[in-house]
Structures are given as structure tokens and as C-alpha cells.
Design a protein around this nucleic acid. Structure first.
Lengths: 247, 247
DNA sequence: CAGAATCACTTGTCCGAACAAGTCGATGAC
DNA sequence: GTCATCGACTTGTTCGGACAAGTGATTCTG
């Protein structure tokens, strides 16, 4: 947390959570904040831009900024890692590898991982649980250059993300998520202990390194009622997009 | 389109879509871009910051920016409005009001719309279709100060958002979306023409004016397979958050 | 009294500069 | 040949200034 504008953003977040700036009320002006923190106006603007992107405050030219809400957004690590997310909530996560094998890349693998068709990939099927109950079925496909490190992990590994970071310093930096709902198939139902046809929340995701190199893509299916996802957007910044039909 | 940094951002987006900067490849340096467009480095940084927030490019200190993908994200207007989104895809949207009545606000209404319990609200039930097939069941609750304008709309109104903008200049500026999957209830199934228990993608959202005043909240249920949502995030900016289910 | 004009204030845009921090290829030592 | 060092290059941070554009309350006008 070196950068001054990040410190200021964090102080503002906490001030909002404390109720110092009530929801629906105005934030101090940029001039006042720059005086209070002894920084230039540009630095203050970087700080409030972060809160705007998170959907915590609204902003219009000419009028004071408005506090929209105080929900806490999670770090990328917490979103990416089921185990870290569960730990942050005070719940215990479990994980078990059911299946793991290498195979040549299909056309879909090749496109998503930016590799050639037929290159070797590592496919893994995991079940994840929360406080004992199975909640999530995870189908991952890793690029070949990651396969060795993933295979070395124990079958009961709770946090894959953390293990990979500690072993080889691998950082997951970017992600694209496609969200929809599907009915549980026969295999889904058996492995999650639910009825066939039950609704599942499906998140398909591609993750890349800081250099933009794809690491893995995955198909996560959450049991209905166990997990929901939140996203904030605005007329200015719009991370959420709707897409039609099958893809 | 006035702001220079927005123009540059749009030109970069188109250049990426044209394949001028291939996926996985580097973007020109800030210095080169500022020379090419005859603007200062700060203006270029504003432009590339927008693309970074959209997840199209990645950025690390010291290294050149990397093109992560060329997916096109819809504008906020298209996301807010089912009809505009459908039109942008070359499909025809339909809409029909099934039920509409005023009632006192419940505790849930009061919290989400920042009004007092018992204040009047307007509840509306709509079915939306794509190319003739029913796709979406929409349950909206509008704050009292919006009720008159909404009631004046025709029952078959295709685009509520656009109609409200043209009538009274109302703009939907901010939104918070909670996404999960649910099974279709008896009413859902009957109105959407699907089997009971079929998976539905549920989006609950609250929208507000540019001034941060809540306009409405709604519960949208999409038929499985018709629509999906995409969100990009990164270690730096993360609009997406996971929450434990609370029913 | 209602509506229009005014004006202080606030945010948005853009500039130019300087330094810090990190990356990556080239060079040189072992 | 391998590895560490170096240095050019690139992005990140911060400053200070200037003007444009929009808001909202006050004042003025009919």
C-alpha cells in the first residue's frame, strides 16, 4: 500500500463504512480533501476514481459526489480463490480432486488458452465444499506449461491459488467471467448430491498472468442458493455486459 | 464524444477490433501514442485506463501494455435497456405488462429504495420476449415519485427506459446487480412457457439517478440458455464480488 | 408569486514536468 | 555456456496550473 492515492481511497472507504459519510449524502469536495490529506487535487481524483469504479460513490460534473452504498468489494484474490473467500467469511472450505489427466487441446481449449490445437493440456475435475456440504463443481483446463506444477499438488489441496503462488510465484492477474444458469446433468447431480435438473449457477472463466498469458479456463457450477455474485456499474464505467444465447 | 481521451479510447478499441494490435501483442508506448494523437501523456493514460477497466488490455509497471482480448462490451444504456440491447444485436424485443398496482412499501422496499416503510410504491410485472419467444420475467418496484410516469406508459411499451427518458428526461445512471440461479416456480413457469423447476438466471438490481436517488429495484428472471452475462476484472480493479447465499 | 437570469462553487479536461519503480535485452564475468 | 550486472526503456506517482462545463441557490424581473 505504497501509493498515496491508495491510502486515501482506503481511508475514504473506511470513513464510509463508519458512517462518517452517510449513504445518500455528499462527499467533501476535492479541494477540501486535497487540503486535508496535503496532496494535490490530481491525487485525490485518483482516489475517488477508485471508489467510483467500485460503485461506492457517484459523480457528476458540477455537483458534489454522492455516497451510493457501503458494500465491501472483495479483492481479486478472494474472488479467484474459493478457499481464501471462505476463510474471509469465517467458514471452512474443502476441496478434492476427482479426476485429472492430460489430453490434446480441443478447438475450444486452443482458442481460450491461445495455444495450438493438439497441444497438451491438463484437465482437472474438483468438488468444493463449504462447511462440509458440496457446493461447487469445478472443471479446469490448464495450459501445458502449468501442468507440472498443478500435478504436484495434493489431491485434497484446499487452496490451489495459494499453493501455486507459494510454489512457483504464479499470480493470477486478469479474469473474464461468463455467467449463466444451467440444469444439473446426471454427473453434476451425482457429484453434488442434488437432483438431476436442479438449477446451477455456471461461471465460465479464463484467467491470465500479469503478462497477459492465459493460464487456465474453467467451468464452475454452484448449487443454487449457496452463492450469488454482485456487480456494480454506472453510466461511466460498465464492466458488465449481457450476451445472447449459447456460446 | 467531446472529450479527447474518449475519442482516443474509441480509436484504440477499433484498432484492436481491426486486429491492428493483435491479442497477446503489445500496445504502443504512452510516449508514442501521445505523439501520434498530439496530446499529453496524461490524456493518453486516461484513454488506456478506460480500456484497462473494460478488461481489454493489461498493464504492468515497466512493461508494455498487452492486448488481452477484443470482446466488445455493450454500453451501459444497452445493458440497462432490454430493448436497446436487443436492437443492437439485430433482434426484436417485445414487452407486455401483466399486472400493475400501487401498494405500501414493505421493509425490503423501504431499504432498497431509501424510503420509509408504508410509503406508496408501484409494482409492475412484465414479460419480455426476444424474436417472439418469452425470455424474461421482470418484477419491478418503482418509488412513488416515479409512479405517475410509469403508469402513463402503454402496456405494450417495448423500451421503458427510452420512454421515460423521452417523457421526463429520466436517466438511469447507477446500478447494482446481484446474480444467482433459481428454479422456476409455478407462476414463473406458466408465464414463461417452460416447465416448473427449470433453471432461471436471476438478476436482482437497484438503479439510481445521477444524483444517487433510487428509482426502482427489480427481480429479472431469464430463461436458461437465452442470455448470459460477462464481466472482466483484474488484480487492480474488481467490480465482481461473490456472496454466500441467503435464499 | 412564478419564472428567468446570475453567480459562486464543484467537477471534468488537459497540459507539462519530474522522479520512482519495474522490465527486459545486452553485456560482461566466471 | 551460464549467470549476474547493467542500462535503456516503459509505466506509475505526484505536483501545480489553467480553463471548460455543469449545478444549485440566490437574486432579480415581470
Amino acid at each position: 500500500m505504497a501509493a498515496r492515492h491508495e491510502e486515501i481511497a482506503e481511508e475514504l472507504r473506511q470513513a464510509i463504512d463508519r458512517g462518517e459519510y452517510p449513504v445518500g449524502g455528499p462527499l467533501p469536495t476535492e479541494t477540501e480533501l486535497s487540503a486535508r490529506y496535503a496532496v494535490s487535487r490530481g491525487t485525490v481524483r485518483q482516489a475517488v476514481a477508485a471508489l467510483t469504479a467500485e460503485g461506492r460513490i457517484g459523480s457528476r460534473q458540477g455537483a458534489r459526489r454522492v455516497v451510493l452504498g457501503n458494500r465491501r468489494s472483495q479483492s481479486f484474490a478472494e474472488l479467484r480463490s474459493f478457499a481464501q473467500w471462505a476463510a474471509a467469511m469465517g467458514r471452512t472450505a474443502t476441496g478434492r480432486v476427482l479426476e485429472q489427466h492430460r489430453r490434446p487441446a480441443t478447438a475450444e481449449d486452443a482458442e481460450k488458452l491461445q495455444i495450438k490445437r493438439g497441444d497438451e493440456v491438463l484437465q482437472v475435475l474438483r468438488v468444493r465444499g463449504l462447511d462440509g456440504d458440496p457446493v461447487l463443481l469445478e472443471r479446469n483446463v490448464y495450459a501445458a506449461w502449468m501442468a507440472d506444477s498443478v500435478e504436484r499438488l495434493p489431491a485434497e489441496c484446499v487452496s490451489v491459488v495459494q499453493a501455486l503462488y507459494e510454489d512457483i510465484g504464479m499470480v493470477f492477474a486478469y479474469g473474464e467471467h461468463v455467467i449463466d444458469a444451467v440444469a444439473a446433468g446426471a454427473e453434476d447431480a451425482r457429484l453434488l448430491g442434488i437432483r438431476r435438473g436442479s438449477p446451477l449457477l455456471r461461471i465460465r472463466r479464463v484467467t491470465t498472468t500479469p503478462a497477459g498469458r492465459p493460464i487456465e479456463w474453467s467451468d464452475d457450477r454452484y448449487v443454487s442458493g449457496t452463492v450469488s455474485f454482485t456487480v456494480a456499474n454506472s453510466i461511466g464505467s460498465n464492466p458488465l455486459a449481457r450476451q445472447a444465447g449459447q456460446a
